[in-house]
């Protein structure tokens, strides 16, 4: 067992986790943050994306112990932001959501790319290539993404 302290969605949070526990399980099962989705579990699909210290990571392949002292943002943490408000409007207009399983990961990845958080944006397609969507096809995603990051 390990004790950790980290800021999750702006709130200082103390946790007790097993050494081998993954962040995805902690978020979903201990903290009830089920907006973080479980799918491929091999870092390919992006459904489990969360932001740790500003960078998108796969929570399915990150030991929970890694977030000690870190700042974590899940989709629930975006709820009251102006980004989220805009994203809702843009995603709706471009019909970017069908089943919605990929949407939290996609939104968090896009959020990390806005406002120069990761420096100048080099290649939007490359940045989003790790977020798979089985429903919509990628044109509507790219159209919405371009609008949101421009």
């Amino acid at each position: 067992m390990m004790q950790l302290e980290s800021t999750i969605n702006g709130r200082c949070t103390q946790l007790e986790v097993n050494d081998n526990e993954l962040l995805l399980d902690v978020l979903r099962d201990h903290l009830g943050l089920t907006g973080t989705k479980r799918s491929c579990e091999v870092e390919v699909c992006g459904a489990c994306t969360v932001i740790v210290d500003g960078l998108p990571v796969s929570s399915c392949m990150l030991l929970a112990s890694e977030i000690d002292g870190a700042e974590v943002v899940t989709i629930e943490g975006l709820r009251d932001t102006t980004f989220y408000e805009r994203a809702q409007e843009v995603f709706t207009r471009h019909a970017t959501v069908q089943c919605g399983f990929c949407t939290p990961g996609l939104l968090l990845t896009l959020w990390s790319l806005t406002d120069g958080r990761l420096g100048p944006l080099r290649d939007l397609r490359e940045e989003l290539s790790g977020n798979l969507c089985r429903c919509t096809g990628y044109q509507s995603i790219l159209a919405a993404a371009e609008e949101l990051t421009s």
Partner: peptide, 12 residues
């Protein structure tokens, strides 16, 4: 480096 894997694998 900027084309390896995906953004999440590159981050860690």
């Amino acid at each position: 480096a900027s084309r390896i894997a995906n953004a999440r694998v590159r981050a860690v």
